[in-house]
């Protein structure tokens, strides 16, 4: 039983991170119907920038907590700029072209960013400085750390902020209008270019936060860390019903928990034939199953073809 609870907690933490990244995918997809493959790389850049800034500040004598905050802010700024430029340089010129074109561009950008990161930060693993003191908690036999608590709380706060932005501000209303029908929205005076750019910027800021979380959770970072994370976050978005904010959050947390439980129990289920190193397949197996039975995702609306 304590394994069960432990895995739920681990899954919740991992899932909060997926959820934050999934929001970036779902916002861009909801508004312009594009899978921004490079989004995972934005997370990676966020992690690496925060490492550099935090350790530089810390080396200059700034207290670690403050240095970490500086790293977080720097990561957010860099990622927001990166998200904005991605949209401006790579995707905007391709509006209205067949779907495959921007998808290939996104894959291309992902490769470019990965290799740029490798050139800048090298091909070795980097250690992430410990931002929070190592405090352990115990609850009903399950252990968790201060970092884990912070991750869940911070991502909940970020999601709350996003919901406020989308449902309570003018920009959010413009976003929702553009997602419904870009042509009509622009007729009604919405600057769709600005809305799309805003979706990229906001999504990238969330990605930066997620990047710092991943870094401090695993205490390690690498130029290739973004791709699999991005892929799983996208899976989470599809799982919840892509284009749907609540769906992305729920999908993220759900995927995190499924993975954690799967990794914890797969050995027992298969009589030891398959072990926990199959963890990465759960995301995809779940994805395939969900899409088979509910192609619009768990919380998505049904979109039928119209004749």
């Amino acid at each position: 039983m304590d394994i069960f609870l432990q895995q739920i907690i681990n899954g919740l933490v991992q899932g909060s991170i997926y959820a934050l990244v999934a929001l970036g995918y779902t916002m861009v997809y909801g508004i312009m119907g594009l899978i921004n493959f490079a989004h995972g790389e934005v997370v990676m850049i966020g992690t690496l920038v925060s490492i550099t800034v935090t350790s530089t500040l810390a080396a200059a004598g700034v207290p670690l907590g403050l240095a970490g905050l500086g790293g977080l802010i720097a990561a957010m700024l860099v990622c927001m700029a990166l998200g904005w430029s991605l949209e401006r340089i790579a995707y905007r010129p391709l509006r209205g072209s067949p779907r495959l074109t921007p998808l290939i561009t996104a894959i291309g950008m992902s490769i470019v960013l990965q290799n740029l990161a490798m050139i800048i930060w090298g091909r070795n693993y980097l250690t992430f400085p410990p931002l929070l003191p190592k405090v352990n908690f115990e609850f009903a036999g399950a252990h968790f750390t201060l970092v884990q608590v912070a991750i869940v709380l911070l991502s909940a706060a970020m999601m709350g902020g996003l919901v406020f932005l989308v449902y309570r501000t003018k920009l959010g209303m413009a976003m929702r209008a553009t997602a419904q029908n870009p042509a009509v929205a622009s007729l009604l005076g919405v600057n769709t270019n600005r809305v799309i750019a805003a979706a990229f910027v906001v999504g990238s800021a969330l990605a930066a936060v997620a990047g710092v979380m991943v870094g401090s959770y695993y205490e390690i970072a690498h130029y290739q860390m973004g791709f699999m994370l991005g892929l799983k976050a996208f899976t989470a978005a599809v799982l919840g019903g892509i284009g749907n904010l609540a769906g992305a959050m729920a999908g993220g947390v759900l995927l995190g928990i499924i993975e954690a439980l799967g990794a914890g129990y797969i050995g027992d289920f298969t009589g030891g034939f398959l072990g926990s190193h199959y963890q990465d397949i759960f995301a995809f197996v779940v994805l395939i199953i969900v899409l088979m039975f509910k192609p619009s995702g768990l919380f998505g609306e049904k979109t039928g073809d119209r004749a």
């Binding site: 495959l100 892929l231 072990g275 990465d280 995809f284 088979m292």
Partner: peptide, 30 residues
């Protein structure tokens, strides 16, 4: 099961399938 899906969903499902195959190849030694 997947060919009725919209184009970009198919892309992601096939991508996932590719990864599943690779993971199995990597781990089917014990």
């Amino acid at each position: 099961p997947t060919l009725k899906l919209r184009g970009d969903y198919l892309a992601i499902v096939t991508l996932g399938f590719g990864e599943i195959v690779r993971i199995f190849l990597n781990n089917l030694n014990s």
